[in-house]
């Protein structure tokens, strides 16, 4: 199927969905309290753009959510990647740290949010630590696995050609591990984006998640739907962007 046909069918399907959504309200199947129509959501968007939502602007809420998400994710990358690389190279580092990381990894971040709020307060710090702790084990494990899966043959070939251990790491191990590291980072960022919204529910005074929860208390389904659509679009944009960086940066993936 050509790209054009796929695009046309996709647009057709989205348009049908929008039409169905509009018809639910227009035919009176559900009251607008329960499901605001597309027109209401558009009006809510214009209103919030002009007047803000409960003393916060839309840009402020978007930046708050994305900022927390990135702060936790970047911290996890900065610490997780070198640590994972080290653990992949050194058995001692692996033995000393891996059990802690493998204990943290399967824990749902929300389960320890209560503790983090107790320790760090209800501000941004507890949320960023939460996102860090959610993303860090995934990234570290990916970096470690990436180093481990580098083919021994290649390392031996480089060594036989006279490469020093540092050169082997720089030119053979690291590039080969990069593709696994990126996969880990993508999974971690998706998780962080999910967790940040959940964290904003527990304690926050801005952010898209906060906006949605605050609107739900007043049964403002127009604002809720607006928030959901924005979160969905940002989520799609984030995963697309990482996908693109991935194919750009690691152009040798799948061509070994």
């Amino acid at each position: 199927m050509s790209n054009f046909r796929a695009l046309a069918l996709g647009s057709l399907s989205v348009a049908t969905g929008l039409l169905g959504w509009w018809l639910i309200g227009a035919l009176g199947i559900a009251s607008s309290d329960l499901l605001a129509g597309p027109g209401d959501v558009w009006a809510a968007l214009i209103d919030i753009l002009h007047n803000g939502y409960r003393d916060t602007t839309l840009a402020q809420n978007i930046l708050a959510t994305l900022g927390r998400c990135f702060a936790g994710f970047v911290a996890a990358t900065i610490i997780g990647v070198p640590l994972g690389l080290w653990m992949g190279r050194s058995r001692m580092a692996d033995a000393s740290l891996n059990f802690v990381i493998q204990f943290l990894r399967p824990l749902p971040p929300l389960s320890y949010l209560v503790l983090l709020i107790l320790w760090f307060g209800a501000g941004d710090l507890s949320k960023i630590v939460l996102l860090f702790m959610g993303a860090f084990p995934t990234i570290t494990t990916a970096a470690m696995a990436g180093v481990r899966h580098v083919s021994a043959q290649r390392i031996q070939a480089a060594r036989a050609l006279g490469a020093s251990p540092r050169q082997v790491f720089r030119f053979v191990v690291f590039p080969a591990a990069l593709s696994t590291i990126f996969t880990g980072m993508r999974i971690a960022l998706a998780g962080a984006f999910s967790s940040v919204v959940a964290a904003e529910l527990m304690a926050a005074s801005d952010g898209l998640g906060w906006m949605v929860f605050s609107a739900s208390r007043f049964l403002r389904t127009d604002v809720i739907l607006l928030g959901i659509i924005l979160l969905g679009l940002f989520g799609m944009a984030l995963s697309r962007a990482l996908m693109m960086i991935d194919t750009r940066l690691i152009h040798w993936r799948g061509r070994d």
Binding site: M1, R5, A6, L7, L9, G10, L12, S13, V14, G17, L34, L35, A190, F193, S194, S195, V196, V197, A198, L201, L208, G209, V212, F213, A215, S216, L219, T221, I224, L225, G227, I228, L231, G232, L233, G235, M236, L238, S239
Partner: peptide, 26 residues
Amino acid sequence: DALAAPFVEFLRPLPQLAYLVLLIIW
């Protein structure tokens, strides 16, 4: 695939808790 992909791609990265409030209302 062409018909369903937009919805699946939208739903996948969407934080689950965002639509929980709607489900609770409904």
